[in-house]
């Protein structure tokens, strides 16, 4: 038996928004420790890794490990039926071929349930090596979304260069070129608005704008985003999900031909 209750169903809505443009379907792996998802986009350029810890749920029970293959468009339809303030419960029997979503209004005067068929998906898990990254940049997530949106007007690629002084995002194309530099913030009263850089070695890498823009769909989940980079390895873009977990995106770099 699997049962997970979340008072804020809006968190789950936001998680779905953050993955549904990159992935058509995905397997939600449920275990005693929580719900995990790992999936690559169809072109195998990026990977989504979601972790929702069981202790972050208001109630959580998972007697046997359960892999739920889910069509994300179907799940989006169901999550649209939940009010932002609704309490959500996901429920499935062991070896079930369906999952039930139950939504309760805060005053408990409206209760609804939606049953969704599960899919059999080929499970393909990748081993992600532990990496000490040369640069770890934390910045406001809305700022990062703005930068990705603005630079994608100039070209298909963004160069992210990080030094001790700051981080520079650059793009170039037919209409010209663009550079956005962010310096590390000196004194900030509000942690959410800070730009911080931990640098061992300077790094400059090129990434496809299109994917960065997909990742920024996670912006509503967290006021800050963390970018981790090392030479010639995939970029990690991480958004914390409150007290419950995180979503990480990995993106393979573009290299000189």
């Amino acid at each position: 038996m699997f049962e997970a209750r979340l008072v804020q169903s809006s968190i789950f809505k936001k998680v779905l928004e953050a993955i549904k443009e990159l992935l058509n379907e995905a397997t939600f792996d449920c275990s005693d420790s929580g719900i995990q998802l790992q999936a690559m986009d169809s072109s195998h350029v990026s990977l989504v890794s979601l972790n929702l810890r069981s202790d972050g749920f208001d109630q959580y029970r998972c007697d046997r490990n359960l892999s739920m293959g889910i069509n994300l468009a179907s799940m989006t339809k169901i999550m649209k039926c939940a009010g932002n303030d609704d309490i959500m419960t996901m429920k499935a029997q062991d070896n079930a071929d369906s999952v039930t979503f139950m939504f309760e209004s805060p005053n408990q005067e409206k209760m609804s349930d939606y049953e969704m068929k599960l899919m059999n998906l080929d499970q393909e898990h990748l081993g992600i090596p532990e990496t000490d990254y040369s640069c770890v940049i934390k910045l406001p997530s809305a700022e990062f979304a703005r930068i990705c949106r603005d630079l994608s007007q100039f070209g298909e690629s963004v160069v992210i260069s990080c030094t001790k002084e700051g981080v520079k995002f650059s793009a170039a194309g037919d209409i010209g070129s663009a550079n956005i530099k962010l310096a590390q913030t000196a004194n900030v009263d509000k942690e959410d608005e800070a730009v911080s850089i931990e640098m061992q070695e300077k790094v400059s890498l090129t990434f496809a704008c299109r994917y960065l823009n997909y990742f920024t769909k996670a912006t509503p989940l967290s006021p800050q985003v963390c970018l981790s980079m090392s030479a010639e390895v995939p970029l990690v873009v991480e958004y914390k999900i409150g007290e419950i977990g995180h979503i990480r995106y990995y993106l393979a770099p573009k290299i000189e031909e």
Partner: peptide
């Protein structure tokens, strides 16, 4: 000109 690398060249199947 740059070329997109596949993620599978960094992360191996488990």
């Amino acid at each position: 000109p740059t070329k997109q690398v596949s993620l599978t060249s960094f992360f191996k199947k488990k």
